[in-house]
């Protein structure tokens, strides 16, 4: 069913993007040693995910996608429980996290909102200051302000050289934090992107509207332009231009009567959604423009 291969360099933040049921959580389960791969293996720090599960956990923090905290405990008891299991005695990191996420953990877990439980899970995942982290949908249930705080915190951790696997379907948090992103679909890695390439892409897309139908016909007939899409009724045209050709592009534009011109910003979201709309290869995906 599943055939997923990827590696994460030390100190790298790796995004794991895909729709529900794509196999993100299953992959993390294997890395954590909860399940044994039918084929192949997972390795963390050179240790086998299944055989050495307990040894791997020493250097690892895990934030489960589904927040199901143990019953009958208070938040404080849960933190103490996790600290004891991890053998953590120095609580400075825990205190720092509680402050950062503005969490007051003394209440009963049963009565806590999803957001509070999520914060508790974040605290216990990072409390032992692990070198490696596996975060599954880390911000679901957090309010927008806390999502920002979390992104800020992940960037802090990244600064300290942590290796992070971040599984998510929230584009802006992946875009903001990850060095590389793998897109997973139906149990397969269908695309791998270096985020910097996206940020500094030199192929840009412009959308413009012409004054009238004559201009539209004249414009679409111009062979020097890389026209991607044209709508005659709306008199709108979408054009793809490499940064190197930008001067020539404006020179050509000056010969037409335009209503407006705007750049179509390329976002990961569009890229991702398009990927799921159609069966696309990596090359096509990066080259895509029009909707």
């Amino acid at each position: 069913m599943f055939d997923v291969s990827f590696y994460i360099e030390e100190g790298e933040v790796f995004g794991f993007l895909g729709p529900n049921g794509a196999g993100k959580t299953t992959t993390i389960r294997h890395i954590m040693g909860f399940s044994k791969p039918e084929k192949g293996s997972t390795t963390v720090d050179g240790m086998d995910g299944w055989r050495d599960a307990d040894r791997i956990q020493k250097e690892m923090g895990y934030l489960p996608g589904e927040i199901a905290l143990p019953a009958n405990l208070t938040g404080t008891q849960f933190i103490r429980y996790m600290a004891e299991l991890r053998g953590v005695t120095d609580m400075t990191k825990t205190e720092y996290l509680l402050n950062k996420f503005e969490l007051e953990p003394s209440g009963r877990l049963k009565r806590m909102s999803l957001g509070m439980k999520r914060k508790l899970a974040i605290v216990t995942a990072f409390m032992h200051d692990p070198r490696i982290l596996a975060l599954d949908e880390p911000t679901s249930g957090l309010d927008p302000v806390m999502q920002e705080t979390f992104i800020e915190f992940v960037l802090e951790e990244k600064q300290q050289g942590k290796t992070i696997l971040l599984s998510s379907h929230v584009f802006n948090e992946v875009e903001a934090t990850c060095d590389r992103i793998a897109i997973i679909k139906e149990g397969r890695v269908v695309s791998e992107i270096v985020t910097d390439d996206l940020r500094h892409r030199q192929d840009k897309v412009y959308k413009l509207e012409l004054l009238d139908d004559d201009e539209f016909v004249r414009f679409t007939g111009d062979t020097r332009l890389g026209i991607i899409a044209a709508h005659r009724e709306k008199l709108q045209v979408t054009v793809g231009i490499h940064d190197n050709d930008i001067n020539e592009f404006f020179f050509i534009l000056s010969q037409f009567h335009l209503k407006y011109l705007k750049e179509e910003k390329f976002t990961l979201e569009e890229y991702f959604l398009d990927f799921y709309d159609r069966e696309k290869t990596v090359a096509e995906g990066v080259g895509r423009v029009a909707r």
């Binding site: 954590m32 040693g33 909860f34 599960a53 307990d54 040894r55 956990q57 020493k58 690892m60 923090g61 895990y62 489960p64 589904e66 199901a68 905290l69 143990p70 019953a71 849960f78 996790m82 299991l85 991890r86 053998g87 899970a121 216990t124 995942a125």
Partner: peptide
Amino acid sequence: SEVDRGSMAYTLSTPIKR
């Protein structure tokens, strides 16, 4: 019930052997 609910994940994500 801990496996079903998922709370076992927290215990097993620590350096305690299964």
